[in-house]
């Protein structure tokens, strides 16, 4: 892409309503040359543009080697994402990207992959879960640990159940508040660590979710014996340019849009848990 800040037109090929407020848009660039040239890595994001309304940063959840489609799972939380929720198949968006540094899928080759997420299902880690599952022979054991506030908050429930049936894959779920139909654990994410039987010397951890959850989980994992440099987090901040110019995404000296959004624990730990940073 020539000008990093100018979108290209893309068409909605499919639209999936995941929950009342979460939807997935499957996109294809209308210019075949743009579509053919487009490459991304799991954990990177695009800026999606709605005509006359504005842009939002949305992580890419599809597989980087799927040549047909680019998926974005979006939660309607603001002016742009609310309006975008009304788009139907065949309608068009602007897309520019991909931006940022994604998950360390190369460094993790040959190692166990540990996914830790919290809150309402976390799109950035879904991309890496699917990535590992499609390339099962390149990675060791896959452990997926997800914490939600309340049992009712879990989305993609069937998907978690399907993943738990796969060989060499462990799915552990916990809810801070359980419920009558909650078959999994009760408590915050770290209650799962003892159940996971992690190979601490041979695991790469990838975390995504609310900052407080990631801090608690990171500390718990360090206590388990996982080296700090093997723990990665995906951060979120306001992003408008996506190329490290507009200044909104700064966390201390880091620009989340270009230095992240994925950081290793040592790179970002000094900025975590300080209100207002």
């Amino acid at each position: 892409m020539n000008d990093l800040r100018q979108p290209h037109e893309a068409e909605i090929i499919e639209r999936v309503q995941e929950t009342p407020s979460i939807y997935t848009l499957r996109l294809r660039f209308t210019d075949p040359a743009v579509h053919a040239a487009y490459r991304f890595a799991p954990g990177q994001f695009n800026m999606l543009y709605l005509y006359g309304v504005g842009e939002v940063p949305i992580s890419i959840v599809s597989d980087p080697e799927d040549e047909h489609i680019v998926d974005h799972t979006i939660r309607a939380v603001g002016r742009v994402t609310d309006a975008m929720a009304r788009l139907q198949v065949g309608e068009r968006l602007g897309v520019r990207g991909p931006y940022g540094r994604g998950w360390p899928v190369e460094q993790a080759k040959g190692r166990d992959v540990v996914i830790v997420t919290g809150g309402l299902g976390c799109a950035p880690v879904v991309s890496v879960i699917n990535y590992v599952l499609k390339r099962r022979d390149r990675y060791g054991k896959l452990t997926i640990m997800q914490g939600v506030k309340h049992a009712d908050d879990l989305i993609w429930r069937e998907q978690y159940e399907a993943w738990s049936q796969l060989p060499n894959t462990q799915v552990l779920l916990s809810a801070s508040e359980g419920g009558p139909l909650w078959p999994w654990h009760v408590g915050h994410v770290p209650v799962l660590f003892d159940k996971a039987a992690l190979d601490v010397a041979n695991s790469t951890v990838m975390m995504c979710g609310p900052e407080g959850m990631m801090i608690a989980a990171g500390k718990g994992l360090l206590e388990q014996g996982i080296p700090a440099e093997d723990i990665y987090l995906s951060m979120e901040r306001n992003m408008q340019c996506a190329v490290g110019k507009c200044g909104h995404c700064q966390m201390g000296g880091q620009f989340v849009c270009k230095d992240g959004p994925v950081f290793s624990w040592p790179e970002i730990v000094a900025r975590l848990g300080i209100k207002g940073v």
């Binding site: 603001g78 306001n238 207002g276």
Partner: peptide, 22 residues
């Protein structure tokens, strides 16, 4: 400036002045 999906990262004037000076 610090709006993030429905909330503000820096709610107070103290946090904003600190952001600027730091």
């Amino acid at each position: 400036h610090s709006y993030l999906h429905g909330h503000l990262v820096r709610e107070s004037g103290a946090q904003r002045y600190r952001q600027w000076l730091m």
